[in-house]
Simulated scan of single mutants.
Amino acid sequence: MGLGGCILLIGAGAILTFATDWQTESVNLDLVGLIMMAVGIIGVAVFTSIARRRRAIVPPVTPTYVDETRR
């Protein structure tokens, strides 16, 4: 899941938790929203840690020249 999907989960979870007042007998939408926000936050944390590892700076290798004219 990419960063956009994680942010979408956080936003949808916040809408379910804080902006709706729907009542259902079988599903607690506040809890579903909190779970979606938690999964989104965990996803953002995992994504940034993986992205940080991928962007590790590797020093360039300097080429070694051999002068063939020297004896």
Rank of each mutant, 00 (worst) to 15 (best):
L9G: 00
D30E: 11
D30S: 04
I41W: 05
V58I: 04
L3K: 15
L3W: 11
T24F: 06
M1I: 02
N28M: 07
V39P: 03
M37P: 06
L3E: 15
I7G: 09
F47M: 03
I35H: 12
Y65N: 08
V46H: 04
I35C: 14
S26H: 14
V66L: 08
Q23W: 08
N28T: 09
L29V: 15
A51G: 03
Q23A: 14
D30Y: 03
G11E: 11
L16Q: 10
P63L: 07
V46N: 06
A38W: 11
L34G: 04
T62P: 02
G33C: 11
D67S: 05
L8D: 04
E25N: 13
R53V: 09
G43A: 13
P60V: 07
L29I: 15
G2S: 15
G2C: 15
G13D: 01
L34D: 02
S26C: 10
A14Q: 07
F47C: 03
V44K: 01
G43T: 12
T24C: 03
T64W: 03
V61M: 09
E25V: 13
S49N: 11
L16A: 12
I41G: 11
T48H: 09
D30A: 01
T20W: 14
A56L: 12
E25P: 08
R70L: 06
L16M: 08
V39R: 12
M36L: 14
I50L: 14
L34W: 03
G40D: 02
L9K: 01
R70T: 07
N28P: 04
S49T: 08
A38N: 07
T64D: 05
R70C: 02
T64K: 08
V66A: 11
G2P: 05
F18P: 00
G11L: 14
V44Y: 01
A56F: 10
M37E: 11
V39A: 15
G13Q: 00
L9T: 00
T20H: 08
V39F: 14
A56G: 09
P63I: 12
V46S: 05
G5T: 11
S49I: 12
W22A: 12
A51D: 15
Y65V: 15
R55A: 15
L29C: 02
C6S: 01
T20Y: 08
V46F: 05
Y65F: 11
L3S: 10
T69L: 05
V58W: 00
D67W: 02
R70S: 03
D30K: 06
I7F: 13
L8Y: 11
T17F: 14
D21S: 11
G11Q: 07
E68G: 06
T48A: 12
R53W: 14
Q23C: 05
F18N: 05
M37W: 09
V32H: 03
F18L: 02
G4Y: 09
I7A: 15
T17H: 08
A38K: 09
Y65E: 10
A38G: 13
S26W: 14
G4T: 10
V27P: 00
I35E: 08
L8I: 13
T17V: 12
A45N: 07
L34P: 00
G4D: 13
A51P: 00
I57M: 08
L9I: 00
D21G: 10
